[in-house]
């Protein structure tokens, strides 16, 4: 596989192996993404959706009413 995957770019200035590479930037970006997801989810569910009533509700109440 090596012949298929070897790759050297002119801009290449250092080689980092799995051990010495710490994807801290990725962790920060993904953390921000996580926060965005949580906040947008809460906004969409509790403001956009639950605030968009009337909403279809269960039949349980009707059944009780008819009984």
């Amino acid at each position: 596989m090596s012949s298929k995957t070897e790759q050297r770019e002119p801009e290449h200035v250092q080689t980092l192996g799995h051990e010495e590479y710490d994807p801290i930037g990725t962790a920060i970006l993904i953390g921000i993404y996580f926060l965005i997801l949580v906040l947008l989810w809460i906004f969409m569910y509790f403001v956009e959706f639950l605030g968009n009533g009337p909403t279809v509700v269960g039949m349980a109440l009707t059944v009780v009413g008819l009984a």
Partner: peptide, 16 residues
């Protein structure tokens, strides 16, 4: 958390 929110919607506000 997502599944819990949806379940809350079904149980709390009673969305069917």
């Amino acid at each position: 958390g997502f599944i819990a929110t949806i379940t809350y919607g079904a149980v709390g506000p009673g969305i069917a």
